[in-house]
Protein backbone atom coordinates (compact mmCIF):
# COMPACT_ATOMS: atom_id res chain seq x y z
CA UNK A 1 0.00 0.00 0.00
CA UNK A 2 1.49 3.30 -1.06
CA UNK A 3 1.20 6.27 1.26
CA UNK A 4 -0.15 8.53 -1.48
CA UNK A 5 -3.24 6.31 -1.79
CA UNK A 6 -4.86 8.29 1.03
CA UNK A 7 -6.35 11.72 0.53
CA UNK A 8 -5.73 12.74 4.15
CA UNK A 9 -3.71 11.66 7.14
CA UNK A 10 -6.96 10.76 8.84
CA UNK A 11 -7.72 8.27 6.07
CA UNK A 12 -4.25 6.76 6.38
CA UNK A 13 -4.67 6.33 10.14
CA UNK A 14 -8.17 4.90 9.76
CA UNK A 15 -6.84 2.35 7.27
CA UNK A 16 -4.03 1.44 9.68
CA UNK A 17 -6.53 0.69 12.46
CA UNK A 18 -8.79 -1.24 10.07
CA UNK A 19 -5.92 -3.44 8.92
CA UNK A 20 -4.76 -4.18 12.46
CA UNK A 21 -8.30 -4.92 13.59
CA UNK A 22 -8.82 -7.28 10.64
CA UNK A 23 -5.72 -9.13 11.80
CA UNK A 24 -7.17 -9.28 15.30
CA UNK A 25 -4.50 -7.16 16.96
CA UNK A 26 -3.54 -3.67 18.04
CA UNK A 27 -1.40 -1.40 15.88
CA UNK A 28 2.20 -0.93 16.96
CA UNK A 29 3.51 2.63 16.75
CA UNK A 30 7.14 3.18 17.71
CA UNK A 31 8.33 6.63 18.79
CA UNK A 32 11.75 7.74 17.67
CA UNK A 33 13.25 11.25 17.64
CA UNK A 34 14.83 12.73 14.55
CA UNK A 35 18.53 13.36 15.13
CA UNK A 36 19.39 10.64 17.64
CA UNK A 37 22.06 9.34 17.74
CA UNK A 38 22.59 11.30 14.50
CA UNK A 39 20.21 12.53 11.83
CA UNK A 40 21.20 9.78 9.36
CA UNK A 41 21.09 7.01 11.94
CA UNK A 42 17.64 8.06 13.16
CA UNK A 43 16.30 7.70 9.63
CA UNK A 44 17.95 4.31 9.21
CA UNK A 45 16.46 3.17 12.52
CA UNK A 46 12.93 4.26 11.59
CA UNK A 47 13.27 2.57 8.20
CA UNK A 48 14.47 -0.63 9.90
CA UNK A 49 11.49 -0.59 12.28
CA UNK A 50 9.18 -0.11 9.30
CA UNK A 51 10.65 -3.25 7.79
CA UNK A 52 10.28 -5.04 11.15
CA UNK A 53 6.52 -4.61 11.04
CA UNK A 54 5.69 -1.29 12.71
CA UNK A 55 2.20 -0.10 11.77
CA UNK A 56 2.87 3.62 12.13
CA UNK A 57 5.33 6.08 13.66
CA UNK A 58 5.51 8.86 16.13
CA UNK A 59 8.37 10.98 14.80
CA UNK A 60 9.89 13.00 17.63
CA UNK A 61 10.61 16.71 17.05
CA UNK A 62 13.16 17.78 19.67
CA UNK A 63 12.47 20.62 22.11
CA UNK A 64 14.74 22.25 24.66
CA UNK A 65 12.23 21.81 27.52
CA UNK A 66 10.39 18.50 27.09
CA UNK A 67 8.42 18.54 30.33
CA UNK A 68 6.29 15.46 29.60
CA UNK A 69 9.35 13.31 28.94
CA UNK A 70 11.44 11.17 31.23
CA UNK A 71 15.25 11.08 31.30
CA UNK A 72 15.84 8.81 28.28
CA UNK A 73 13.88 10.90 25.78
CA UNK A 74 15.15 14.13 27.38
CA UNK A 75 18.74 13.02 26.83
CA UNK A 76 18.12 11.78 23.27
CA UNK A 77 16.32 14.92 22.14
CA UNK A 78 19.06 17.04 23.73
CA UNK A 79 21.57 15.15 21.57
CA UNK A 80 19.33 15.80 18.57
CA UNK A 81 19.35 19.55 19.27
CA UNK A 82 23.12 19.49 19.65
CA UNK A 83 23.18 17.75 16.26
CA UNK A 84 21.45 20.80 14.82
CA UNK A 85 18.02 19.27 14.32
CA UNK A 86 15.29 21.85 13.70
CA UNK A 87 11.58 21.58 12.93
CA UNK A 88 12.47 21.96 9.25
CA UNK A 89 14.95 19.10 9.51
CA UNK A 90 12.21 16.90 10.99
CA UNK A 91 9.96 17.70 8.04
CA UNK A 92 12.87 16.83 5.74
CA UNK A 93 13.18 13.53 7.60
CA UNK A 94 9.55 12.61 6.89
CA UNK A 95 9.98 13.44 3.21
CA UNK A 96 13.19 11.39 3.06
CA UNK A 97 11.52 8.41 4.77
CA UNK A 98 8.67 8.53 2.26
CA UNK A 99 11.18 8.58 -0.60
CA UNK A 100 12.82 5.50 0.90
CA UNK A 101 9.48 3.72 0.71
CA UNK A 102 8.34 3.95 4.31
CA UNK A 103 4.56 3.83 3.75
CA UNK A 104 3.21 3.62 7.31
CA UNK A 105 1.36 6.57 8.83
CA UNK A 106 3.67 9.08 10.49
CA UNK A 107 2.69 11.53 13.21
CA UNK A 108 5.02 14.33 14.22
CA UNK A 109 5.28 14.52 18.01
CA UNK A 110 6.53 17.87 19.27
CA UNK A 111 5.95 20.49 21.94
CA UNK A 112 3.92 23.56 21.15
CA UNK A 113 6.47 26.38 21.06
CA UNK A 114 8.53 25.22 18.06
CA UNK A 115 5.28 24.66 16.13
CA UNK A 116 4.09 28.17 16.99
CA UNK A 117 7.48 29.59 15.99
CA UNK A 118 7.23 27.84 12.61
CA UNK A 119 3.64 29.04 12.29
CA UNK A 120 0.81 26.52 12.72
CA UNK A 121 -0.53 26.85 9.19
CA UNK A 122 2.88 26.80 7.52
CA UNK A 123 3.82 23.84 9.69
CA UNK A 124 0.67 21.85 8.89
CA UNK A 125 1.00 22.56 5.19
CA UNK A 126 4.69 21.60 5.12
CA UNK A 127 4.09 18.51 7.25
CA UNK A 128 1.33 17.22 5.01
CA UNK A 129 3.33 17.99 1.90
CA UNK A 130 6.31 16.10 3.35
CA UNK A 131 4.07 13.07 3.87
CA UNK A 132 3.06 13.29 7.52
CA UNK A 133 -0.39 12.15 8.61
CA UNK A 134 -0.83 13.72 12.01
CA UNK A 135 0.51 15.77 14.87
CA UNK A 136 0.85 15.00 18.58
CA UNK A 137 1.43 17.92 20.95
CA UNK A 138 1.74 16.88 24.61
CA UNK A 139 1.39 20.39 26.05
CA UNK A 140 -1.73 21.28 24.08
CA UNK A 141 -4.91 20.39 25.99
CA UNK A 142 -8.21 20.25 24.06
CA UNK A 143 -9.34 23.70 25.26
CA UNK A 144 -6.42 25.25 23.38
CA UNK A 145 -6.31 22.74 20.53
CA UNK A 146 -7.67 25.11 17.88
CA UNK A 147 -4.31 26.95 17.91
CA UNK A 148 -2.90 24.05 15.90
CA UNK A 149 -6.03 22.03 15.18
CA UNK A 150 -7.60 24.41 12.68
CA UNK A 151 -4.46 24.35 10.57
CA UNK A 152 -4.26 20.55 10.83
CA UNK A 153 -7.88 20.22 9.69
CA UNK A 154 -7.26 22.52 6.70
CA UNK A 155 -4.36 20.41 5.55
CA UNK A 156 -5.76 16.95 6.25
CA UNK A 157 -3.65 16.14 9.30
CA UNK A 158 -4.91 14.39 12.41
CA UNK A 159 -4.40 16.14 15.75
CA UNK A 160 -4.61 13.63 18.56
CA UNK A 161 -5.51 14.54 22.12
CA UNK A 162 -4.51 12.92 25.37
CA UNK A 163 -6.40 11.24 28.18
CA UNK A 164 -4.82 10.30 31.49
CA UNK A 165 -5.91 8.20 34.48
CA UNK A 166 -6.77 11.51 36.16
CA UNK A 167 -9.28 12.43 33.42
CA UNK A 168 -12.88 12.46 34.63
CA UNK A 169 -15.98 11.77 32.50
CA UNK A 170 -16.19 15.42 31.50
CA UNK A 171 -12.59 15.41 30.23
CA UNK A 172 -13.15 12.14 28.37
CA UNK A 173 -16.17 13.67 26.63
CA UNK A 174 -14.25 16.82 25.66
CA UNK A 175 -11.22 14.92 24.37
CA UNK A 176 -13.43 12.46 22.49
CA UNK A 177 -15.09 15.38 20.74
CA UNK A 178 -11.89 17.23 19.83
CA UNK A 179 -9.35 14.48 19.03
CA UNK A 180 -8.92 13.49 15.41
CA UNK A 181 -7.11 10.35 14.23
CA UNK A 182 -7.05 8.69 17.62
CA UNK A 183 -7.05 9.38 21.34
CA UNK A 184 -3.65 9.04 22.99
CA UNK A 185 -4.30 7.30 26.29
CA UNK A 186 -1.56 7.82 28.85
CA UNK A 187 -1.28 4.61 30.88
CA UNK A 188 0.07 6.18 34.07
CA UNK A 189 0.25 9.52 35.81
CA UNK A 190 3.78 10.48 34.98
CA UNK A 191 6.28 11.22 32.25
CA UNK A 192 7.46 8.98 29.43
CA UNK A 193 9.74 6.12 30.34
CA UNK A 194 9.84 2.36 30.74
CA UNK A 195 8.10 0.87 33.79
CA UNK A 196 8.57 -2.69 35.02
CA UNK A 197 4.81 -3.22 35.29
CA UNK A 198 1.70 -1.70 33.79
CA UNK A 199 -0.63 -0.08 36.32
CA UNK A 200 -3.22 -2.38 37.94
CA UNK A 201 -6.21 -0.18 37.09
CA UNK A 202 -5.46 -0.09 33.35
CA UNK A 203 -8.34 -2.34 32.21
CA UNK A 204 -10.87 -0.31 34.19
CA UNK A 205 -9.49 2.97 32.87
CA UNK A 206 -9.70 1.78 29.24
CA UNK A 207 -13.23 0.45 29.82
CA UNK A 208 -14.24 3.80 31.28
CA UNK A 209 -13.00 5.60 28.14
CA UNK A 210 -14.50 3.01 25.78
CA UNK A 211 -17.90 3.57 27.36
CA UNK A 212 -17.79 7.19 26.18
CA UNK A 213 -16.24 7.04 22.71
CA UNK A 214 -15.71 4.79 19.72
CA UNK A 215 -12.64 6.69 18.49
CA UNK A 216 -9.51 4.54 18.29
CA UNK A 217 -7.52 4.41 21.53
CA UNK A 218 -3.73 4.30 21.42
CA UNK A 219 -1.96 3.58 24.69
CA UNK A 220 1.39 5.09 25.56
CA UNK A 221 3.87 5.73 28.41
CA UNK A 222 5.53 2.84 30.20
CA UNK A 223 5.24 0.05 27.61
CA UNK A 224 8.64 -1.46 26.93
CA UNK A 225 8.48 -5.26 26.73
CA UNK A 226 6.77 -7.90 24.53
CA UNK A 227 4.97 -9.23 27.59
CA UNK A 228 3.38 -5.81 28.17
CA UNK A 229 2.51 -5.57 24.47
CA UNK A 230 0.67 -8.90 24.78
CA UNK A 231 -1.32 -7.58 27.72
CA UNK A 232 -2.41 -4.34 26.04
CA UNK A 233 -3.03 -6.02 22.65
CA UNK A 234 -6.68 -6.96 23.32
CA UNK A 235 -7.42 -3.74 25.22
CA UNK A 236 -6.65 -0.96 22.76
CA UNK A 237 -6.49 -0.15 19.05
CA UNK A 238 -2.82 0.70 19.16
CA UNK A 239 0.10 1.33 21.46
CA UNK A 240 3.24 3.45 21.45
CA UNK A 241 6.68 2.42 22.64
CA UNK A 242 9.24 5.21 23.01
CA UNK A 243 11.86 5.24 25.73
CA UNK A 244 12.67 1.53 25.45
CA UNK A 245 13.38 1.88 21.73
CA UNK A 246 15.37 5.08 22.22
CA UNK A 247 17.41 3.33 24.89
CA UNK A 248 18.02 0.43 22.51
CA UNK A 249 19.14 3.07 20.01
CA UNK A 250 22.13 3.74 22.24
CA UNK A 251 23.35 0.24 21.33
CA UNK A 252 22.81 0.64 17.63
CA UNK A 253 20.29 -0.01 14.90
CA UNK A 254 20.22 -3.79 15.39
CA UNK A 255 19.08 -3.50 18.99
CA UNK A 256 16.22 -1.20 18.01
CA UNK A 257 15.15 -3.41 15.12
CA UNK A 258 15.24 -6.54 17.29
CA UNK A 259 13.18 -4.94 20.07
CA UNK A 260 10.67 -3.55 17.55
CA UNK A 261 10.38 -6.97 15.87
CA UNK A 262 9.79 -8.71 19.21
CA UNK A 263 7.16 -6.15 20.25
CA UNK A 264 5.41 -6.63 16.92
CA UNK A 265 5.66 -10.42 17.07
CA UNK A 266 4.08 -10.43 20.53
CA UNK A 267 0.84 -9.21 18.94
CA UNK A 268 0.47 -12.39 16.85
CA UNK A 269 0.72 -14.75 19.84
Amino acid sequence: MNHTTYATGLDALAAMFTRAKAAGRAAFLPYFPVGFPTYDESLDIIEAMAAAGADGFEIGVPFSDPLADGPIIQAATQVALENGVTVQRCLDAVRELRSRGVHQPMLLMGYLNPLLAYGPDAFAEAARSAGADGVIVPDLPPEEASLVGDACARHGLALTAFLAPTSNAQRVALVAERATGFIYVVSVTGVTGARSALPPGLEDFIARVRAQTDKPLVLGFGISQPEQARRVNPLVDGFIVGSALVKAGQSGIHSVRDLAASLRAALDD
Binding site: P141, E144, F162
Partner: peptide, 12 residues
Protein backbone atom coordinates in the same frame (compact mmCIF):
# COMPACT_ATOMS: atom_id res chain seq x y z
CA UNK B 1 -1.82 33.33 29.65
CA UNK B 2 -3.94 30.22 29.22
CA UNK B 3 -3.22 26.69 30.25
CA UNK B 4 -0.76 24.64 28.22
CA UNK B 5 -0.06 21.50 30.21
CA UNK B 6 -0.16 17.74 29.72
CA UNK B 7 -3.69 16.40 30.14
CA UNK B 8 -2.71 14.57 33.34
CA UNK B 9 -2.45 17.95 35.09
CA UNK B 10 -5.66 19.52 33.83
CA UNK B 11 -7.87 18.00 36.56
CA UNK B 12 -5.38 19.17 39.19
Amino acid sequence: GGRFVPETLVPA
